[in-house]
Write a protein that binds this DNA or RNA. Structure first.
Lengths: 178, 178
DNA sequence: TATTATATTTAGTTTATACTAAACATTCAC
DNA sequence: GTGAATGTTTAGTATAAACTAAATATAATA
C-alpha cells in the first residue's frame, strides 16, 4: 500500500532517522522509534524488522538502547513469548532521560578535565619564567570552567524540574505562545 | 618540555577533542580550538600543525569551520602573508553561533518533515476504514509537532537574548549560585 | 527431552568520515 | 617574470561505527 497514510508514516520515519543521526545516535534507532511511535498498538521485534527493513540483530540492539533511554517501553504478554514495544509520548520526559543517561555523564567528564588542567597550571613547580603563562592559563581555564559549571547547573535544574515547573519554564521562554 | 603547564595544555586539548567529537564535530577541530584558546597570542597555521600534530590540510579546513562558527577569529598582519587565529572567549556567544549555524537549520528540517506527514494524514483521499488510523496519526504527529515548536521557540529565544537578558536567564536557572 | 519460537551475541562486511600527502593556486618579493 | 612562502583542494587511505547473516542462548511447550 502506498496511500497518503503510508506516505505520512514513511516520511516521518525518515525524518526521525535523520534527527537520530544528527544527535549522534544510529539512524536505525530513530527509524525504529518512528515506527513504534506511529503504531496504534505495541509492535513485536519481527514486526519492526518488517516495517523498517533492518536486520533482527540491529533492531534488537537499537530497541534495547531506546528502552534504556526511556523512549520505548517493553510489554510482555502472558502466553506469548514475544516482546512488544510501545512509545513514550511525553517528549520532555524523553529529553530528561537522554540528558540523564548521556549528556550529564559527558559534561562531568568535561568538567573534570578542565579541573585537572587548572590544577596543573596552579602547580607549585612552575618556574619563574613560566609564571606569566601560568597566570594566563589560569585565566582562560577559569573562564571555561565557569561556563561548564553553568551548563552543568542548567542541566541539573532541568532534570530536577517536575511537570508543573517545566510548564512554567516553557512559558517563560515564550514557548507556549504558539 | 613536559612540565606541568605543558601537561595542562595537552590534557585540555585532549578534553576539547572529546567534547568536539561528542557534539558531532571532528576531533581535530576541538583540538585545534583548544590549542588556540590556550595560546597567549594568535597562532599561524604552521604553528597549529606543530602543536596538534595534524596535517596542514586538515588544520586548514578545520580552522575555517571554526571561523565559520565564530569560535576563532582570523587576523591578517601587514607585511606578513600568514593567517593568524585567536579564540573567541565568550562561550555563550559561541553557543549562539552554533545554534544559529547548525542546530537551527536542522530543527527547521525536522519541523517541516512533521508538518508534511501531518498534512498527508489529513489528506481527503483517506478511505473509510483507514479513518481511525488517520485520526491516530494526527494525534501523535500533532503531539510531536507541538514539542518541536516549543524547542524551536526556545532556540529562537536564546538566539535573541542579549548579554543582559542572558544573565537573567542564567540566574533563573540557578546557574549563578555556584 | 526434543522441538519450536524468540531474542541476543558474534564475526565479518559495508560505509561514511576525517585524515594524510601531495598537487595546485595564490600572493608577494626581488 | 621567477622563486619562495603560504593556504586550499584533491585523490587516496585508514578507521570507526553500524549493519547483516548466522550462530548461539533462552524459554516454553509438548
Amino acid at each position: 500500500m502506498d496511500n497518503s497514510l503510508s506516505q505520512a508514516r514513511q516520511n516521518f520515519i525518515q525524518g526521525m532517522s535523520r534527527i537520530s543521526f544528527f544527535w549522534g545516535f544510529p539512524k536505525a534507532m530513530g527509524a525504529i522509534f518512528g515506527a513504534i511511535y506511529l503504531s496504534p498498538g505495541p509492535l513485536s521485534l519481527d514486526q519492526l524488522v518488517e516495517q523498517v527493513s533492518v536486520s533482527k540483530g540491529a533492531v534488537s540492539t537499537n530497541v534495547r538502547q531506546l528502552e534504556r533511554l526511556g523512549m520505548v517501553q517493553k510489554h510482555l504478554r502472558v502466553g506469548d513469548r514475544k516482546d512488544y514495544y510501545s512509545a513514550e509520548t511525553d517528549f520532555w520526559k524523553i529529553v530528561k532521560g537522554i540528558l540523564r543517561e548521556r549528556e550529564k555523564q559527558e559534561f562531568d567528564i568535561a568538567i573534570r578535565t578542565v579541573d585537572l588542567s587548572l590544577e596543573l597550571s596552579q602547580s607549585a613547580e612552575i618556574s619563574e619564567e613560566e609564571l606569566e603563562l601560568a597566570v594566563f592559563y589560569q585565566d582562560r581555564l577559569g573562564n571555561i570552567q565557569r561556563f561548564f559549571e553553568k551548563i552543568d547547573n542548567l542541566v541539573a535544574t532541568v532534570l530536577a524540574l517536575d511537570e508543573f515547573r517545566m510548564g512554567a519554564v516553557q512559558k517563560l521562554f515564550g514557548a507556549d505562545q504558539k
